[in-house]
Design a protein around this nucleic acid. Sequence first.
DNA 1: GATGCGTGGGG
DNA 2: TCCCCAAGCAT
Length: 348
Amino acid sequence: MNQSFSNLLINWYNQHQRDLPWRDTSDPYRIWLSEIILQQTRVDQGLPYYNKFINQYPSVHELAKAPEDEVMRLWQGLGYYSRARNLHECAKSIVNQYDGEFPDTYEELLKLKGIGKYTAAAIASFAFDRAVPVVDGNVFRVLARYLDISDDISQPKTFKTFFNVAKQLIPENQAASFNQALMELGATICTPRKFKCENCPLSLDCQARIHHKQSELPVKKKKIKIRHRFLYYLIWKEGDKLAMKKRGPNDIWQGLFDFDLIETNHPLTIEEIYEKVNKQYSNVELVEISEPVKHILSHQRLQAVFVELQSKNENVLSDHSLKYFTKQEVEELPKPRLIENYLTSKDF
DNA sequence: GATGCGTGGGG
DNA sequence: TCCCCAAGCAT
């Protein structure tokens, strides 16, 4: 049955695989880049970023030499920005400690920044033909359904169960195809909802299909808690310059730029905004207050109001991490979507 | 081991 | 509108 599973799967994949740039190559740099971009990200969303990065940084050497803000700016809009920082750090260690060559084993790859168990297995199999199984959201789903495994996949220890199952199934001489095929099947046929069992090469022996349990598998118990935050952005202008600030660690959007900020856990009236602003600063007028803008993150719900200000005092900015940037400079800073959208709407 | 980290799309 | 989730990782 193991052999039948792998053969059916790989045969199906050979007829249905998509034509994607990182599959034309065995260049570890390109495979690595594509895998980092595709972490928690759909192909359609990641593809343009892959192309931008390959154009700007054809090899790991150009990427390693680039300034961090430039890398962050190129990543802008893709989310999970720690991926971009780790990508850059990893590129630097490949050049400085590995002589520009990626290591070719699962264990060595795991040591690199931003490379975890999934990505190490992906690079080891796709670039170096190692028989290490990838275990991602797709693999959890396909195997849980096919074998009727009801372990809770939100528990970290469950990873080992699925890793071992996949290790039993993976053919030593076709590891890359097997891994790709399993993920592709999960992404296109064995989807979370509206699964297409009638097109599935594995449907005959699939336990979930036989027992009509597709929508119950895989089991995932943990739910994330949504936090609500209210952001009042203070827009300081000086001539044609705009005051912006780089966001720090232990919060969202680390390394990206936004504006001076007053934050609360509840909405404020205009009067309350005025009061709070004039408590921090003095002689300040509120020039314009935007409608609240909603911005949703995976685990937070933000409501942002943009407040344009004017002060009669000079050097209003008490916060020294705030700096004035020209329009040209602002354009080149890495910014979260929320800020980018605001600037676009104001045609700044 | 639990939690935090973006954005966009589908049902 | 809401929920789920997508080729995970670091801490």
